[in-house]
């Protein structure tokens, strides 16, 4: 008797847990879906990171403004690639009106996108592009411009003939490579000498090691551009250790980097706009459903965060 009731209790708990969570989402669906029947499904790399929460917030805002229903989903971690593919699958079988995807592993989504195409569901990409012909558009940071703006800002702090170092991401990472190209162009135009250009795999510690090595050869180094914030922070720890004070510029405008800008440690970081990616993702998805013409490539705004606007930016991202 006792065992049977325990078993029952377990089952009930499970059912209640299910009921509890579904209750919430049903409410959410109800209020958004009433005004119009359009349903946009957004599947991100993950939702367990402030950056992606910010994309989600943008999408929800657009849903409210446009009166459509948006569901945002993402696996527990960016490494759960197949989970993400499954989520896209589920969205297709729920006959979503449009899909907005930030692929964790761009090479894995082509097959499932083909499936969406055969169901006539338009697919938009945000944040990370994928090599798939039939996408409606890719909405994300123009990495070249971001790099260029960073380079221009760094150049403005230096004088002609100064030496700088460029810290790249992992070999073959398209996004970081484009940023480096942009920065290089701006710096060279201002007559700054590129003393060294080395990869640090988007990793803090690797970047610190790279800068250590560069400082050995170039004691007169006058500035550093790193292709993301993490590497900029790593570079900073290396220059601090060497007792050198030079301007360092990164990309992302994340919280840690912004705080370091406020403290005067980092010179600047070029912020991406995850909120805008989410918002524009939904906005353009609705356009695509309505059959409007859409640009194949839509850049999202970038902003150079410096000591002047860092406080304000910090509040925004928090």
């Amino acid at each position: 008797m006792k065992k049977r009731s325990t078993l029952l209790a377990i089952l009930c708990t499970g059912v209640l847990a299910l009921a509890g969570c579904s209750g919430q989402s049903e409410e959410g669906n109800g209020s958004a879906g009433n005004t119009e029947d359009l349903q946009v499904q957004m599947i991100l790399k993950t939702l367990s990171h402030p950056y992606w929460k910010s994309v989600e917030a943008g999408a929800k805002q657009a849903a409210e403004d446009l009166g459509v229903s948006v569901e945002v989903n993402g696996p527990p971690s960016e490494a759960d690639v197949i989970d993400q593919v499954n989520m896209i699958d589920n969205a297709i079988s729920q006959s979503a009106d449009a899909l907005v995807v930030a692929p964790s592993q761009p090479s894995t989504v082509a097959n499932v996108f083909d499936l969406a195409k055969s169901s006539d569901i338009p697919v938009l990409l945000v944040d990370t592009d994928a090599d798939w012909e039939d996408k409606v558009t890719f909405i994300g940071t123009d990495n070249f411009s971001a790099g260029k703006e960073a380079g221009e800002y760094l150049a403005s702090l230096l004088k002609e003939g100064d030496k700088v170092a460029l810290v790249e991401g992992a070999k073959g990472n398209l996004a970081t490579d484009e940023r480096i190209d942009g920065a290089k162009e701006a710096l060279e135009a201002a007559g700054i000498e590129i003393a060294a250009q080395l990869p640090a795999d988007s990793d803090k510690f690797e970047a610190a090691a790279v800068i250590d090595a560069i400082l050995q050869n170039h004691s007169d180094l006058a500035g550093v551009f790193a292709a993301n914030d993490d590497m900029a922070i790593g570079a900073l720890s290396a220059t601090d250790q060497a007792g050198v004070q030079i301007p360092i510029v990164g990309i992302n405008g994340g919280e840690e980097a912004t705080e370091l800008i406020i403290n005067g440690k980092l010179a600047a970081s070029v912020a991406q706009s995850p909120f805008d990616m989410g918002y524009m993702g939904v906005e353009n998805a609705v356009k695509a459903i309505n059959g409007d013409e859409i640009e194949k490539r839509i850049p999202t705004p970038i902003k150079v965060v410096t000591e002047e606007n860092a406080e304000e930016h910090l509040q925004e991202i928090q």
Binding site: L18, C21, S48, N73, P76, D80, D83, Q94
Partner: peptide
């Protein structure tokens, strides 16, 4: 469970807990 919670738009974090 994954599929169902997904359809109900339950977040992945909650799915893990379930």
């Amino acid at each position: 469970l994954r599929n169902g919670l997904n359809l109900l738009n339950v977040s992945a974090d909650f799915q893990m807990a379930v």
